[in-house]
Structures are given as C-alpha cells and as structure tokens.
C-alpha cells in the first residue's frame, strides 16, 4: 500500500501546482501510515526532482524517454498505470490540470478506481469512509464525495493548499522504464505552441491576479492592468464579454464557462460581477473590486473595494506597489 503522486514538470522545473500535489500526497500518506512516491512527467532535472523531499516525498520515479517531454495522453496513462501497479498504490494524487484530468479519467477506468476532481481539502477518513471535499456548481458550492472501492484517484485544485518546504530534505530519484512502445505515442502532439504570458506568470498557477472587464473600455487601455500585474508579479485575466469581443485571448477568460481560479488575491477592475463571473473567482482568498458604480454587485462579494474610475485608480495602485517594493 502506498500513495503515488503525479508530478508535472516543464523546462526542468516542477510546476507549482505539482509542489502542492506532492504536499497533499505526502499528507495523505501520513494519514494512512505509509509513504508517498512520485512519478514525474515532462522535462525534469534530477536535482529538482530530489528537492521533492521538501514536500515530503520519499522516492521519485522518472522515465527519461525523450518522447515523454511533451504531453502524450496514452503514453502518460500507461506510464502512470505501470508505476501505480509496481508501487501498489492505493491512492493516486494529481493536479486538476488539463494533463491531470486527461490521464486521471483514463486511469480511473484502467485501474478500476473511484475518481474525484477539483478537490480542495485533505480527505476525511473517519468511520472507515474516504471523503473528499470538491468544488461544484462552477464555484458556487462544494460537495463532500464518498470514494468507494480499494483504489482512489484525487485531482487537487490549484492553489487549494500551500506547498510545504522542509529545507534540506531530499527524495531518492530512481530511473523508471514503463516499456513504452511506438503505438503508445500515436496521439503525440504534432506541434506545441506556447503563448507569451504577461510578466511570465501563468494564470491558472498565479497566486495574484489582476483582471479587467468592459469598464476598461478597450484593449488599448490594458497596459494599466498589465502594469499593476507586473508590479505585483501577478497574472492577468478578463471577464467573458472582454474575451467574446477579442479584446483579450480566450485563455484569460475566468468565469463559469472560462477557467475557475482561486488565487490569494483577485483584483477586479471595471467588472460588474455577474453571477457567472463570480462563480469563476469567488474561491479567491481576498477579492478587491474597483468600479465607478457603487451599486455593482461585485462589491457584495468583495473584501476590499474602491468606488472610483479605474483609469484614475489603477495608476495610483501601481505607484503604491512600486513604492512599497
């Protein structure tokens, strides 16, 4: 019996969400009286994998097959399934990312496991049941879900818990070969295109987010959002109407039919706060709303608010951040 954690890496580094997943997995292992092993996917360095010891991981399996550098659904599924069988994993933990959801859903069938995605807390195991809390109704509610069966797969929502850093602890990195065949790479991507992110901060992983709505009046004014985001090292986002009219790209749209995020700080600029938008952001820890309309519904969901013109307020905030830094 053990806990297996799927760790996503890119350009040699372990993704921030995977450090959270590693922390989660190590804590589940401690609850079950066992150890946590990681299987790393993507491009990783041995030194960075060894550092997963800081999150409580005992051992890291890594298959250096070069074709595993980019995400290949079938190959990743087989790799992780092989590792799960070898380790006798009872609980598999991964990130609630596009990779995590793609392989997690296939693995749940292959390993005959029960699956919970969008999980926001550590499991409760009282009374012999295994219960996880997950986000539902697009951020408008939570549900406690009982996972039955001997095997469980948990996909942890990003930024739901803080990654632990026990400096100096290292994990043992072990070479792993899943004996993948050419056929396993049939659905390999023909091409991977990465987009330039504002200030290099990836929105789904961002701890701080500055977001704009129709109140920004046009894409030519977005430098005000970007300047504040850069000063804060924050990601940038937008509301649905803004991405619908192509002021901003679709991957920045947060809300019920965009992405749901739960950063530590969400600053909404010129967004009225329609219920569909709130659904995507209301699990943010602190919400700031800047809007010239004091009746904007978003103020009811906010922790801090400024009733004022975004074109006047944003430069002041950027200046104040720079002064503080």
């Amino acid at each position: 019996m053990s806990v297996l954690v799927v760790v996503e890496c890119a350009e040699g580094e372990v993704k921030k969400s995977s450090l959270e997943v590693a922390t989660y997995g190590a804590q589940v292992a401690a609850m079950l009286g066992t150890t946590a092993t990681a299987i790393a996917v993507g491009e990783a360095t041995e030194a960075n994998l060894a550092k997963l010891g800081e999150q409580g991981i005992a051992k890291v399996l890594y298959d250096a097959e070069p074709r595993l550098k980019d995400f290949v659904n079938n190959a990743y599924t087989k790799l992780i399934a092989t590792a799960a069988e070898q380790e006798g994993a009872q609980v598999l933990v991964l990130a609630n990312s596009n990779i995590g959801a793609s392989v997690g859903s296939r693995l749940s069938v292959r390993l005959k496991a029960s699956l919970a995605t969008n999980v926001v807390e550590l499991p409760k195991t009282d009374g012999g049941q295994f219960v996880v809390k997950r986000g539902a109704f697009s951020g408008k509610a939570f549900s406690d879900v009982v996972l039955s069966g001997d095997r469980k797969i948990i996909a942890v929502k990003k930024n739901s818990l803080e990654a632990k850093h026990d400096a100096g602890k290292t994990a043992e990195v072990v070479a792993f070969a899943a004996q993948l065949a050419d056929a396993d790479f049939a659905d390999a991507p023909k091409q991977v295109v990465m987009q330039e992110q504002t200030g290099g901060v990836l929105l789904p992983e961002a701890e701080l987010v500055v977001s704009g709505g129709r109140g920004m009046k046009g894409p030519e004014n977005w430098h005000l959002i970007e300047e504040l985001a850069q000063a804060l090292h924050a990601g940038t986002a937008c509301s649905k109407p803004v991405s619908d009219v192509d002021w901003r790209p679709h991957h920045e749209h947060v809300g019920q039919t965009g992405i749901t995020i739960s950063p530590n700080l969400y600053i909404a600029c010129g967004i009225s706060g329609a219920i569909q938008h709130l659904a995507g952001v209301n699990s943010s820890k602190v919400i700031v709303v800047i809007n010239k309309d004091p009746e904007a519904p978003f103020f009811k969901a906010a922790d801090y608010g400024i009733v004022g013109d975004v074109f006047d307020v944003l430069p002041k905030l950027t200046a104040a951040v720079k002064e503080l830094n």
Binding site: S108, N282, A301, G305
Partner: peptide, 21 residues
C-alpha cells in the same frame, strides 16, 4: 463509484471595506 454525501455553500464574506479613491 462515488456518492455525494453532502453539499455546502461557500462561507459568506464579512462585508466589503471601502477605501477612498
């Protein structure tokens, strides 16, 4: 393979603190 045991609504916000523009 899974059953919902219970639903819950997110905790209510304390109320907004307004800062002068």
């Amino acid at each position: 393979r899974t059953q919902v045991a219970e639903f819950a609504l997110p905790p209510k916000k304390q109320g907004v603190k307004l800062i002068d523009a």
